[in-house]
Write a protein that binds this DNA or RNA. Structure first.
Length: 417
DNA sequence: TCTGGGGTCCTAGGACCC
DNA sequence: TCTGGGGTCCTAGGACCC
Protein backbone atom coordinates (compact mmCIF):
# COMPACT_ATOMS: atom_id res chain seq x y z
CA UNK A 1 0.00 0.00 0.00
CA UNK A 2 1.04 3.59 -0.66
CA UNK A 3 0.45 6.54 1.64
CA UNK A 4 0.36 10.22 0.81
CA UNK A 5 1.02 12.46 3.78
CA UNK A 6 0.72 16.18 3.37
CA UNK A 7 0.73 19.18 5.67
CA UNK A 8 -2.52 21.09 6.02
CA UNK A 9 -2.33 24.70 4.80
CA UNK A 10 1.40 24.28 5.16
CA UNK A 11 2.79 27.83 5.03
CA UNK A 12 0.03 29.13 7.30
CA UNK A 13 0.63 26.27 9.71
CA UNK A 14 4.36 27.15 9.84
CA UNK A 15 3.50 30.73 10.79
CA UNK A 16 1.13 29.48 13.48
CA UNK A 17 3.70 27.24 15.15
CA UNK A 18 5.63 30.28 16.34
CA UNK A 19 2.68 32.62 16.75
CA UNK A 20 -0.24 30.92 18.49
CA UNK A 21 -2.28 34.14 18.34
CA UNK A 22 -2.89 33.17 14.69
CA UNK A 23 -4.88 30.09 15.66
CA UNK A 24 -8.58 30.30 14.89
CA UNK A 25 -8.32 33.51 12.84
CA UNK A 26 -8.12 33.96 9.05
CA UNK A 27 -4.48 33.95 7.85
CA UNK A 28 -3.01 34.07 4.33
CA UNK A 29 0.55 33.82 3.02
CA UNK A 30 1.54 35.75 -0.11
CA UNK A 31 3.78 34.87 -3.05
CA UNK A 32 7.08 36.61 -3.72
CA UNK A 33 6.71 40.36 -4.13
CA UNK A 34 3.57 40.15 -1.96
CA UNK A 35 1.59 39.44 -5.12
CA UNK A 36 -0.90 36.58 -4.82
CA UNK A 37 -2.38 34.45 -2.05
CA UNK A 38 -0.58 31.09 -2.06
CA UNK A 39 -1.70 29.63 1.29
CA UNK A 40 -4.88 30.10 3.31
CA UNK A 41 -6.05 29.00 6.72
CA UNK A 42 -9.44 27.26 6.88
CA UNK A 43 -10.93 30.49 8.22
CA UNK A 44 -9.58 32.39 5.20
CA UNK A 45 -10.97 29.73 2.85
CA UNK A 46 -14.36 30.07 4.57
CA UNK A 47 -14.32 33.80 3.75
CA UNK A 48 -14.17 32.83 0.07
CA UNK A 49 -10.53 33.86 -0.47
CA UNK A 50 -9.39 31.92 -3.53
CA UNK A 51 -6.02 30.35 -4.14
CA UNK A 52 -3.88 32.58 -6.36
CA UNK A 53 -5.99 35.73 -6.04
CA UNK A 54 -3.94 38.96 -6.17
CA UNK A 55 -3.95 40.58 -2.74
CA UNK A 56 -5.02 43.98 -4.06
CA UNK A 57 -8.33 42.48 -5.19
CA UNK A 58 -9.29 41.44 -1.66
CA UNK A 59 -7.96 44.43 0.31
CA UNK A 60 -11.45 45.43 1.47
CA UNK A 61 -12.26 41.95 2.73
CA UNK A 62 -8.88 41.72 4.46
CA UNK A 63 -9.56 44.99 6.29
CA UNK A 64 -13.11 44.18 7.17
CA UNK A 65 -12.48 40.65 8.47
CA UNK A 66 -9.05 41.42 9.92
CA UNK A 67 -7.30 38.77 7.84
CA UNK A 68 -3.68 38.36 8.96
CA UNK A 69 -1.21 38.61 6.05
CA UNK A 70 2.32 37.23 5.72
CA UNK A 71 4.99 37.55 3.04
CA UNK A 72 6.47 34.16 2.23
CA UNK A 73 9.34 33.07 4.48
CA UNK A 74 10.86 30.14 2.61
CA UNK A 75 13.72 29.75 5.04
CA UNK A 76 11.22 28.96 7.77
CA UNK A 77 9.03 26.71 5.60
CA UNK A 78 12.00 24.76 4.26
CA UNK A 79 13.24 24.12 7.76
CA UNK A 80 9.84 23.01 9.06
CA UNK A 81 9.48 20.74 6.03
CA UNK A 82 12.82 19.08 6.85
CA UNK A 83 11.57 18.37 10.38
CA UNK A 84 8.40 16.68 9.12
CA UNK A 85 10.29 14.61 6.54
CA UNK A 86 13.01 13.47 8.93
CA UNK A 87 10.39 12.35 11.44
CA UNK A 88 8.60 10.39 8.68
CA UNK A 89 11.83 8.61 7.78
CA UNK A 90 12.02 7.18 11.28
CA UNK A 91 8.52 5.71 11.03
CA UNK A 92 8.21 4.10 7.59
CA UNK A 93 10.61 2.00 5.51
CA UNK A 94 10.78 4.36 2.52
CA UNK A 95 9.53 7.82 1.63
CA UNK A 96 9.56 9.86 -1.55
CA UNK A 97 9.58 13.59 -0.82
CA UNK A 98 7.25 14.88 -3.49
CA UNK A 99 7.13 18.57 -2.60
CA UNK A 100 7.89 20.91 0.28
CA UNK A 101 4.75 19.76 2.11
CA UNK A 102 4.05 16.21 1.00
CA UNK A 103 5.59 12.77 0.77
CA UNK A 104 4.57 9.41 -0.60
CA UNK A 105 5.12 6.59 1.90
CA UNK A 106 5.87 2.93 1.28
CA UNK A 107 3.59 1.15 3.75
CA UNK A 108 4.14 -2.40 2.57
CA UNK A 109 4.45 -4.88 5.41
CA UNK A 110 2.76 -2.61 7.94
CA UNK A 111 -0.21 -4.20 9.68
CA UNK A 112 -3.36 -2.48 10.84
CA UNK A 113 -2.84 0.52 8.60
CA UNK A 114 -5.71 2.57 9.93
CA UNK A 115 -4.36 2.61 13.48
CA UNK A 116 -0.79 3.05 12.26
CA UNK A 117 -1.86 5.97 10.09
CA UNK A 118 -3.74 7.77 12.84
CA UNK A 119 -0.83 7.37 15.22
CA UNK A 120 1.59 8.68 12.60
CA UNK A 121 -0.56 11.76 11.96
CA UNK A 122 -0.85 12.46 15.69
CA UNK A 123 2.88 11.98 16.22
CA UNK A 124 3.91 14.40 13.47
CA UNK A 125 1.49 17.04 14.64
CA UNK A 126 2.64 16.67 18.24
CA UNK A 127 6.36 16.79 17.43
CA UNK A 128 6.40 19.56 14.81
CA UNK A 129 3.28 21.59 15.50
CA UNK A 130 2.17 21.10 11.90
CA UNK A 131 -1.23 19.44 11.32
CA UNK A 132 -1.03 16.75 8.61
CA UNK A 133 -3.34 14.39 6.69
CA UNK A 134 -2.71 10.90 5.35
CA UNK A 135 -4.40 9.02 2.50
CA UNK A 136 -3.68 5.33 1.96
CA UNK A 137 -4.53 3.19 -1.09
CA UNK A 138 -3.05 0.82 -3.65
CA UNK A 139 -1.79 3.51 -6.06
CA UNK A 140 -0.40 7.03 -5.77
CA UNK A 141 -3.38 8.57 -7.52
CA UNK A 142 -5.86 6.78 -5.23
CA UNK A 143 -3.76 7.76 -2.19
CA UNK A 144 -4.18 11.37 -3.36
CA UNK A 145 -7.94 10.84 -3.53
CA UNK A 146 -7.94 9.31 -0.03
CA UNK A 147 -5.91 12.22 1.29
CA UNK A 148 -8.59 14.70 0.23
CA UNK A 149 -11.17 12.78 2.24
CA UNK A 150 -8.85 12.60 5.24
CA UNK A 151 -8.71 16.40 5.15
CA UNK A 152 -12.36 16.98 4.52
CA UNK A 153 -13.99 14.78 7.16
CA UNK A 154 -13.09 15.07 10.83
CA UNK A 155 -14.29 11.52 11.50
CA UNK A 156 -11.19 10.10 9.82
CA UNK A 157 -8.90 11.65 12.47
CA UNK A 158 -6.48 12.67 9.74
CA UNK A 159 -6.18 9.29 8.02
CA UNK A 160 -8.36 7.82 5.27
CA UNK A 161 -7.81 4.31 3.98
CA UNK A 162 -9.16 3.02 0.66
CA UNK A 163 -8.63 -0.71 1.00
CA UNK A 164 -11.66 -2.27 -0.63
CA UNK A 165 -13.39 -2.13 -4.01
CA UNK A 166 -16.47 -0.76 -2.33
CA UNK A 167 -14.60 2.16 -0.75
CA UNK A 168 -12.78 2.85 -4.02
CA UNK A 169 -16.04 3.20 -5.95
CA UNK A 170 -17.61 5.49 -3.35
CA UNK A 171 -14.50 7.66 -3.26
CA UNK A 172 -14.34 7.97 -7.05
CA UNK A 173 -18.03 8.86 -7.28
CA UNK A 174 -17.49 11.69 -4.78
CA UNK A 175 -14.41 13.08 -6.52
CA UNK A 176 -15.04 15.75 -9.13
CA UNK A 177 -12.99 15.26 -12.27
CA UNK A 178 -11.10 18.54 -11.82
CA UNK A 179 -9.88 17.37 -8.42
CA UNK A 180 -8.11 14.30 -9.79
CA UNK A 181 -4.31 14.54 -9.58
CA UNK A 182 -3.01 15.04 -13.12
CA UNK A 183 -6.18 16.55 -14.54
CA UNK A 184 -5.80 20.29 -14.80
CA UNK A 185 -7.91 23.08 -16.27
CA UNK A 186 -7.63 22.08 -19.90
CA UNK A 187 -8.26 18.38 -19.52
CA UNK A 188 -11.14 18.78 -17.09
CA UNK A 189 -12.86 21.16 -19.52
CA UNK A 190 -12.33 18.65 -22.32
CA UNK A 191 -13.68 15.78 -20.22
CA UNK A 192 -16.66 17.75 -18.96
CA UNK A 193 -17.58 18.55 -22.55
CA UNK A 194 -17.82 14.78 -23.04
CA UNK A 195 -20.07 14.47 -20.00
CA UNK A 196 -17.38 13.09 -17.68
CA UNK A 197 -17.96 14.92 -14.41
CA UNK A 198 -16.37 12.70 -11.79
CA UNK A 199 -13.53 10.23 -11.31
CA UNK A 200 -15.93 7.28 -11.37
CA UNK A 201 -17.23 8.14 -14.85
CA UNK A 202 -13.65 8.61 -16.01
CA UNK A 203 -12.66 5.20 -14.67
CA UNK A 204 -15.40 3.57 -16.80
CA UNK A 205 -14.22 5.08 -20.11
CA UNK A 206 -12.77 2.64 -22.66
CA UNK A 207 -8.93 2.71 -22.37
CA UNK A 208 -8.51 3.41 -26.08
CA UNK A 209 -10.65 6.54 -25.77
CA UNK A 210 -8.57 7.76 -22.81
CA UNK A 211 -5.34 7.08 -24.70
CA UNK A 212 -6.59 9.03 -27.70
CA UNK A 213 -7.79 12.03 -25.67
CA UNK A 214 -4.98 12.25 -23.13
CA UNK A 215 -2.00 10.25 -24.47
CA UNK A 216 -0.05 7.82 -22.30
CA UNK A 217 -0.27 10.13 -19.27
CA UNK A 218 -4.05 9.78 -19.21
CA UNK A 219 -3.85 6.04 -19.80
CA UNK A 220 -1.62 5.70 -16.75
CA UNK A 221 -3.95 7.83 -14.66
CA UNK A 222 -6.91 5.67 -15.69
CA UNK A 223 -5.14 2.49 -14.56
CA UNK A 224 -4.08 4.11 -11.29
CA UNK A 225 -7.67 5.14 -10.51
CA UNK A 226 -8.78 1.61 -11.28
CA UNK A 227 -6.45 0.41 -8.55
CA UNK A 228 -3.49 -0.70 -10.65
CA UNK A 229 -0.28 1.03 -9.54
CA UNK A 230 1.72 2.51 -12.44
CA UNK A 231 3.67 5.23 -10.65
CA UNK A 232 6.22 3.88 -8.23
CA UNK A 233 8.04 5.30 -5.27
CA UNK A 234 11.58 6.47 -5.81
CA UNK A 235 13.72 7.42 -2.85
CA UNK A 236 16.62 8.52 -5.00
CA UNK A 237 17.11 12.23 -5.38
CA UNK A 238 17.35 12.48 -9.12
CA UNK A 239 19.64 14.97 -10.72
CA UNK A 240 17.82 18.06 -11.86
CA UNK A 241 17.42 18.60 -15.59
CA UNK A 242 17.28 22.34 -15.31
CA UNK A 243 17.74 24.95 -12.61
CA UNK A 244 15.90 28.24 -12.77
CA UNK A 245 16.11 31.47 -10.85
CA UNK A 246 13.69 34.26 -11.71
CA UNK A 247 11.80 37.07 -10.00
CA UNK A 248 9.41 39.85 -10.80
CA UNK A 249 10.68 43.30 -9.91
CA UNK A 250 9.26 45.46 -7.17
CA UNK A 251 8.99 48.23 -9.76
CA UNK A 252 9.13 48.11 -13.54
CA UNK A 253 12.32 49.38 -15.16
CA UNK A 254 13.57 50.38 -18.62
CA UNK A 255 17.22 50.38 -17.66
CA UNK A 256 19.78 47.89 -18.90
CA UNK A 257 21.78 48.51 -15.71
CA UNK A 258 18.87 47.34 -13.55
CA UNK A 259 18.30 44.28 -15.72
CA UNK A 260 22.01 43.47 -15.71
CA UNK A 261 22.20 43.60 -11.93
CA UNK A 262 19.12 41.40 -11.53
CA UNK A 263 20.33 38.96 -14.19
CA UNK A 264 23.75 38.75 -12.54
CA UNK A 265 22.09 37.95 -9.22
CA UNK A 266 19.93 35.21 -10.77
CA UNK A 267 22.99 33.77 -12.47
CA UNK A 268 24.85 33.82 -9.15
CA UNK A 269 22.02 31.91 -7.44
CA UNK A 270 21.90 29.38 -10.28
CA UNK A 271 25.64 28.78 -9.94
CA UNK A 272 25.27 28.32 -6.17
CA UNK A 273 22.46 25.80 -6.66
CA UNK A 274 24.56 23.96 -9.25
CA UNK A 275 27.47 23.64 -6.83
CA UNK A 276 25.21 22.50 -3.99
CA UNK A 277 23.92 19.71 -6.21
CA UNK A 278 27.34 18.89 -7.70
CA UNK A 279 26.13 19.71 -11.20
CA UNK A 280 27.53 21.73 -14.07
CA UNK A 281 25.57 23.58 -16.75
CA UNK A 282 26.31 23.16 -20.44
CA UNK A 283 24.39 26.31 -21.26
CA UNK A 284 22.60 29.24 -19.67
CA UNK A 285 19.47 30.97 -20.87
CA UNK A 286 18.47 34.50 -19.92
CA UNK A 287 14.93 35.77 -20.43
CA UNK A 288 13.33 39.18 -19.92
CA UNK A 289 9.68 40.18 -20.04
CA UNK A 290 7.40 43.16 -19.66
CA UNK A 291 4.34 43.23 -17.39
CA UNK A 292 1.84 40.92 -19.11
CA UNK A 293 -1.07 42.36 -17.11
CA UNK A 294 -0.48 45.88 -18.40
CA UNK A 295 -2.17 45.52 -21.77
CA UNK A 296 -1.96 49.29 -22.19
CA UNK A 297 1.85 49.07 -22.46
CA UNK A 298 3.90 47.60 -25.32
CA UNK A 299 4.75 43.96 -24.64
CA UNK A 300 8.05 42.20 -25.20
CA UNK A 301 9.39 38.79 -24.25
CA UNK A 302 12.63 37.30 -25.42
CA UNK A 303 15.27 34.81 -24.40
CA UNK A 304 18.76 33.87 -25.52
CA UNK A 305 20.94 30.86 -24.93
CA UNK A 306 24.71 30.84 -24.48
CA UNK A 307 26.50 27.48 -24.53
CA UNK A 308 29.78 26.66 -22.79
CA UNK A 309 32.51 24.65 -24.52
CA UNK A 310 33.01 22.90 -21.16
CA UNK A 311 30.11 22.63 -18.72
CA UNK A 312 30.65 24.79 -15.65
CA UNK A 313 29.35 25.86 -12.25
CA UNK A 314 31.74 28.78 -11.84
CA UNK A 315 29.80 31.88 -10.78
CA UNK A 316 31.95 34.26 -12.80
CA UNK A 317 31.61 32.26 -16.02
CA UNK A 318 27.87 31.84 -15.58
CA UNK A 319 27.29 35.52 -14.77
CA UNK A 320 29.32 36.52 -17.81
CA UNK A 321 27.35 34.23 -20.12
CA UNK A 322 23.98 35.30 -18.68
CA UNK A 323 24.88 38.97 -19.25
CA UNK A 324 26.04 38.22 -22.77
CA UNK A 325 22.65 36.62 -23.47
CA UNK A 326 20.90 39.61 -21.90
CA UNK A 327 22.69 42.03 -24.23
CA UNK A 328 21.51 39.96 -27.21
CA UNK A 329 17.84 40.39 -26.32
CA UNK A 330 17.64 43.76 -24.56
CA UNK A 331 15.66 46.43 -26.40
CA UNK A 332 15.22 49.97 -25.19
CA UNK A 333 11.83 51.56 -24.66
CA UNK A 334 10.06 48.75 -22.78
CA UNK A 335 9.00 48.64 -19.15
CA UNK A 336 10.45 45.38 -17.89
CA UNK A 337 8.82 43.54 -14.99
CA UNK A 338 10.70 40.28 -14.74
CA UNK A 339 13.87 38.52 -15.72
CA UNK A 340 15.42 35.16 -15.02
CA UNK A 341 18.25 32.77 -15.70
CA UNK A 342 18.04 29.03 -16.44
CA UNK A 343 20.94 26.62 -16.20
CA UNK A 344 20.46 23.90 -18.85
CA UNK A 345 22.14 20.75 -20.19
CA UNK A 346 23.11 19.77 -16.66
CA UNK A 347 25.68 17.06 -16.04
CA UNK A 348 27.12 15.73 -12.78
CA UNK A 349 30.47 17.32 -11.90
CA UNK A 350 31.99 13.86 -11.74
CA UNK A 351 31.16 13.04 -15.39
CA UNK A 352 32.49 16.26 -16.89
CA UNK A 353 33.52 16.05 -20.51
CA UNK A 354 36.61 18.19 -20.91
CA UNK A 355 37.35 20.32 -23.93
CA UNK A 356 40.64 19.82 -25.70
CA UNK A 357 41.16 23.55 -26.12
CA UNK A 358 39.85 24.59 -22.71
CA UNK A 359 41.96 27.54 -21.57
CA UNK A 360 40.45 27.82 -18.11
CA UNK A 361 42.18 26.38 -15.08
CA UNK A 362 39.34 24.27 -13.65
CA UNK A 363 41.17 23.43 -10.43
CA UNK A 364 41.75 27.07 -9.59
CA UNK A 365 38.16 27.92 -10.39
CA UNK A 366 36.86 25.12 -8.14
CA UNK A 367 39.08 26.29 -5.29
CA UNK A 368 37.89 29.86 -5.69
CA UNK A 369 34.22 28.83 -5.73
CA UNK A 370 34.66 26.65 -2.68
CA UNK A 371 36.24 29.59 -0.85
CA UNK A 372 33.39 31.86 -1.98
CA UNK A 373 30.76 29.39 -0.74
CA UNK A 374 32.45 29.12 2.66
CA UNK A 375 32.53 32.87 3.12
CA UNK A 376 28.94 33.29 2.00
CA UNK A 377 27.81 30.49 4.31
CA UNK A 378 29.02 32.59 7.23
CA UNK A 379 27.53 35.82 6.03
CA UNK A 380 25.13 35.59 3.07
CA UNK A 381 26.20 37.54 -0.04
CA UNK A 382 29.31 38.93 1.64
CA UNK A 383 31.34 38.22 -1.52
CA UNK A 384 29.49 38.68 -4.82
CA UNK A 385 30.20 39.51 -8.44
CA UNK A 386 30.47 43.29 -8.90
CA UNK A 387 27.84 42.95 -11.63
CA UNK A 388 25.16 42.44 -8.98
CA UNK A 389 25.39 45.87 -7.38
CA UNK A 390 22.74 48.40 -8.41
CA UNK A 391 19.79 46.28 -7.29
CA UNK A 392 17.59 48.82 -5.50
CA UNK A 393 14.83 49.26 -8.00
CA UNK A 394 14.35 45.61 -8.83
CA UNK A 395 14.33 44.49 -5.19
CA UNK A 396 11.47 42.30 -4.01
CA UNK A 397 8.59 43.60 -1.98
CA UNK A 398 8.25 41.70 1.26
CA UNK A 399 6.39 43.86 3.72
CA UNK A 400 4.85 41.27 6.04
CA UNK A 401 7.60 38.75 6.62
CA UNK A 402 7.85 36.85 9.89
CA UNK A 403 11.13 36.08 11.64
CA UNK A 404 13.54 33.25 10.90
CA UNK A 405 12.50 31.49 14.07
CA UNK A 406 14.44 28.30 13.36
CA UNK A 407 17.44 29.44 11.35
CA UNK A 408 18.77 32.69 12.84
CA UNK A 409 20.16 32.99 16.36
CA UNK A 410 18.80 36.48 16.84
CA UNK A 411 15.24 35.39 15.96
CA UNK A 412 15.00 32.48 18.36
CA UNK A 413 12.05 32.92 20.70
CA UNK A 414 13.02 33.54 24.32
CA UNK A 415 10.89 32.05 27.03
CA UNK A 416 10.63 34.20 30.12
CA UNK A 417 10.02 32.48 33.41
C1' DT B 1 -1.16 51.33 -8.04
C1' DC B 2 -0.84 46.28 -6.99
C1' DT B 3 -1.18 39.77 -10.50
C1' DG B 4 4.71 33.96 -7.95
C1' DG B 5 8.44 30.71 -8.81
C1' DG B 6 10.39 26.27 -9.89
C1' DG B 7 9.90 22.14 -11.79
C1' DT B 8 8.42 17.57 -14.80
C1' DC B 9 6.79 14.80 -18.70
C1' DC B 10 5.01 14.10 -23.40
C1' DT B 11 4.38 14.93 -28.41
C1' DA B 12 5.13 16.56 -33.01
C1' DG B 13 8.11 17.82 -36.35
C1' DG B 14 12.55 18.74 -38.36
C1' DA B 15 17.37 17.50 -39.10
C1' DC B 16 20.28 14.06 -39.61
C1' DC B 17 22.35 9.24 -39.92
C1' DC B 18 23.16 4.78 -42.48
C1' DT C 1 8.25 7.41 -65.55
C1' DC C 2 10.59 7.03 -61.61
C1' DT C 3 12.38 9.07 -55.71
C1' DG C 4 13.33 3.75 -49.21
C1' DG C 5 13.08 2.45 -44.67
C1' DG C 6 14.33 2.62 -40.12
C1' DG C 7 16.16 4.97 -36.72
C1' DT C 8 18.06 8.84 -33.23
C1' DC C 9 18.41 13.36 -31.39
C1' DC C 10 16.91 17.92 -30.55
C1' DT C 11 13.61 21.62 -29.72
C1' DA C 12 9.34 24.14 -29.07
C1' DG C 13 5.13 24.04 -27.13
C1' DG C 14 1.54 22.26 -24.24
C1' DA C 15 -0.10 20.18 -20.19
C1' DC C 16 0.44 19.32 -15.50
C1' DC C 17 2.21 19.66 -10.45
C1' DC C 18 3.03 22.16 -5.80
Amino acid sequence: MIGLLDCNNFYVSCERVFNPALNGVPVVVLSNNDGCVIARSNEAKALGIEMGVPIFKIRALVQQKNVRIFSSNYTLYGDMSARVMSLLRTKVPQIEVYSIDESFLDLNGIKNLEIFGRQLVAKITRCTGIPVSLGIATSKTLAKVANKFAKKYKGYHGCCLIDSEEKRLVALKRTNIENVWGIGRRLSAKLKAEGILNAYQFSLLPPAKVRQMMTVVGARLWRELNGEPCLFLSDEIENKKQICNARSFGEMTQSLDDLSAATALHATRCAEKLRQQNLCAGAVLTFIQTNRFREDLPQYFNQALVSFPTATNDTLEIVKAALQALRQIFKTGYDYKKCGVLALSLTPEAHLQGDLFDAKNRLKSAALMSCLDKLNAQKPSCVVSAATCHLERTALKSAYVSKHFTSDWKDIIQVKI
